[in-house]
Simulated assay, not measured.
Amino acid sequence: MKLGFIGCGNMAQAMIAGVIKAKIVSEKEIIASDKHRPNLEKAGEQLGIKITDDNKEIASSSKILILSVKPVFYDEVIQEITSVIGEETVVVTIAPGKTLEEVERAFGKKVKIIRTMPNTPAMVGAGMTAMCANDQVSEKEIHKVKETLEGFGRVEMVSEYMMDAVVAVSGSAPAYVFMLIDALADGAVLKGMGRREARIFAAQTVMGSGKMVLETGLHPAELKDMVCSPGGTTIEAVRKLEAEGFRSGIIEAMAACAEKSQNMEKD
C-alpha cells in the first residue's frame, strides 16, 4: 500500500477523499483502521479503500503512514507498531503538541517522521497544512508527502518552532472564522434578511476576501482601505469594531491557543 491511516475520523476521511479526488493515490492503494468499527466500515464503503482492524498490517505495508488518532493515544499506537515499521516508511503525524523528538523517542529508534498540522477545510479541498521533518527524511520523501497533502489544499514547510503559531493561525482558526460568519449572519438577520440568505452572503464574503488576500498579494490593510470610503458606511463599522476590541480579541485568542499548544508539548 502507498498510503496508510491509523485512525479514520473526520480529518483522515477528508484527507483520503482529497487525495483520491486529486488522483494522487487511488483508493486501491489506501488502507485504514479505526477503533470505531461503524465509522471504519462507512469510510470503506464510501471511499472504496481497504479497511482492517490490524494496525500492524497498515504499519508494515504502507510507504506513507499517517497517525490520525488523538494525541492521547499516540504512545499506545506507537508501542503497538514500532516493531514492524520499516526503514523506508515515512510516518506522518497530525497531532498538536507532539514534537518530532517526542514521537521518535516513543518509537525507540530512528524513524522517518514528518510532523504536520492540517485543518478541517481539508474536507472541501481547501485545507491549510504546515509540515516539518526530522533529519531521517530525504528531500525526495518530503516532496512526495507534500504532494500527497496538496491533494486536499495548500501546504507550506515551516520550522518546527512555528508549529504552535500554526495551530493558532490555521489549525484552530476555522472555529474563529465560523464564529465570524455566524455573527455576520446574525447581524443580517437583525436587519431583516432570512437566515439562509444571511449565511450564504456571510460565507461567500469571507471566502472571497481570503481569496483576494492570496491572489492580489496586497496587504490586508490595503484591501481594507479600498473598501473604506471617506465618511462612508464601512469606516463607520470599522470604527465600531476597533472600539469593541475586534482585532485585539482575535490576537489574544490566538495567544491563548498557542500557549495551550505549548503546554500540551510539556505534558
Results as ranks from 00 to 15, higher is better:
172 S>I: 09
131 M>W: 11
28 K>E: 15
93 T>K: 02
56 K>Y: 10
17 A>Q: 06
120 T>S: 15
238 V>H: 05
124 V>I: 12
246 F>C: 04
129 T>C: 11
46 Q>T: 13
228 C>G: 06
251 I>S: 12
167 V>W: 04
14 A>M: 05
20 I>R: 02
146 K>Y: 08
143 H>W: 06
190 L>H: 05
237 A>D: 07
92 V>D: 00
75 D>R: 13
165 A>N: 14
102 E>L: 05
82 T>S: 15
225 D>R: 06
2 K>H: 13
241 L>E: 03
214 L>E: 15
7 G>T: 05
107 F>D: 04
8 C>P: 06
209 S>F: 13
100 L>E: 01
176 Y>I: 04
247 R>P: 11
162 M>I: 05
256 A>V: 05
152 F>D: 02
194 G>V: 01
120 T>H: 14
180 L>S: 00
195 R>F: 03
178 F>L: 04
118 P>W: 15
182 D>Q: 06
167 V>P: 04
199 R>S: 06
117 M>E: 02
65 L>T: 04
221 A>F: 07
8 C>V: 10
35 K>F: 11
178 F>I: 00
15 M>V: 09
169 V>Q: 10
23 K>L: 09
182 D>Y: 06
149 L>R: 01
108 G>T: 12
182 D>H: 07
193 M>F: 07
140 K>H: 09
2 K>Q: 13
122 A>G: 14
200 I>H: 08
56 K>E: 07
134 N>A: 06
106 A>W: 14
89 T>W: 14
116 T>V: 05
86 G>S: 07
202 A>R: 04
118 P>G: 14
116 T>F: 04
130 A>H: 09
228 C>P: 02
128 M>V: 11
238 V>E: 01
59 A>F: 12
259 E>K: 15
127 G>I: 07
209 S>W: 13
117 M>N: 00
234 T>Q: 11
227 V>W: 12
248 S>C: 08
